[in-house]
């Protein structure tokens, strides 16, 4: 029964990890850019959701809608006016720019909300259901369902719309996509905006799970990158599978051995997979001409 409890909790938290990492993999797929600010964006969205709840009484699930719109616009503008120019010169400059964004957000959060821990508490935060001896917290069901809905929406967008086809074409081969008439600069801007918007959607959900503080994003970015690498850079399916594996590995490991080993178990698994399959579960080896 204890193992079943761990599996249930692992799958539920894995759903949230998948949402947190999906924007990162989308941005990498389209731009070949590791967005170091991704987790910082998530934490920033957590703060804004906390503030909206505290000041205006807006439920975090409602605030997702507001944040997604605002962050999409912000992300698209950041890509168009800052990152695209830097990428044209040197990809490493854009990478450093995302590091700068992370530091700016962190500093701003510290100034606005202090460095103390915050948590998003709602009226339903305390509810939990139990089926026999297996407890399933309502908040985890909500975050899992919300994550699945958002990820499903993203999947439909990418596979059943012209915009999605253009994004996938740009991801697979930027030059050929351009040759067949895709406005890759515009598509890249939109895709980056979507990636940031997905991160914003994860913020309120994450904030209902865990206490957060301005530089807690450094603890998350490594975990999210590991998920993206294990799943295969740029692969949504891979991100989902890897996130579920990480969630289950963490929760089940803690049941039987010290929690210090939870992350280790995941990374041992990650290294083992990468030795056998360096491109991750669903990644492709990008071959380029010499």
């Amino acid at each position: 029964m204890l193992l079943l409890q761990g599996l249930v909790l692992g799958v539920l938290v894995g759903g949230m990890y998948a949402l947190m990492a999906s924007g990162l993999t989308l941005i990498f797929g389209v731009m070949r850019l590791i967005n170091i600010a991704h987790a910082a964006v998530i934490i920033f969205a957590s703060y804004l959701s906390w503030q909206l709840l505290r000041v205006l009484g807006i439920d975090p699930l409602i605030s997702i809608v507001i944040l997604v719109v605002v962050f999409f616009i912000g992300g698209a503008l950041l890509q168009k006016y800052v990152l695209s120019a830097l990428i044209d010169k040197d990809l490493s400059l854009a990478l450093l720019a995302t590091l700068g964004v992370a530091n700016v957000l962190e500093g701003m959060e510290g100034a606005l909300w202090t460095s103390s821990f915050h948590a998003i508490n709602t009226g339903y935060s305390d509810q939990t259901y139990h089926f026999g001896d297996v407890y399933v917290p309502l908040i985890r069901i909500i975050t899992f369902v919300a994550s699945v809905i958002i990820l499903a929406g993203l999947y439909v967008l990418l596979t059943h719309t012209n915009l999605g086809r253009a994004i996938r074409a740009t991801t697979q081969n930027r030059a050929i996509a351009q040759l067949v008439g895709v406005n890759v600069n515009r598509i890249t801007m939109i895709a980056f905006g979507i990636g940031i918007a997905v991160a914003a959607a994860a913020g309120p959900l994450m904030g209902m799970y865990y206490p957060f503080y301005p530089n807690s994003h450094w603890g998350w970015i490594g975990k999210l990158m590991a998920i993206v690498v294990l799943g295969g850079l740029g692969s949504f399916r891979g991100t989902l599978v890897a996130a579920l594996i990480l969630g289950v590995a963490e929760q089940v490991t803690i049941l039987y051995v010290p929690a210090n080993w939870a992350a280790t178990v995941f990374f041992v698994f990650l290294f083992a997979v990468l030795i056998v399959r360096p491109q991750g579960f669903f990644g492709h080896v990008a071959r380029e001409s010499l």
């Binding site: 204890l2 409890q5 761990g6 909790l9 938290v13 407890y135 917290p137 799970y209 865990y210 206490p211 603890g219 963490e250 929760q251 089940v252 803690i254 049941l255 039987y256 051995v257 010290p258 929690a259 210090n260 992350a263």
Partner: peptide, 16 residues
């Protein structure tokens, strides 16, 4: 059991 300083999820520890 010992947990790392960055631990925030205690559900499995509570289950145990």
């Amino acid at each position: 059991q010992t947990y790392p300083p960055t631990q925030t999820d205690f559900t499995s520890i509570g289950s145990a």
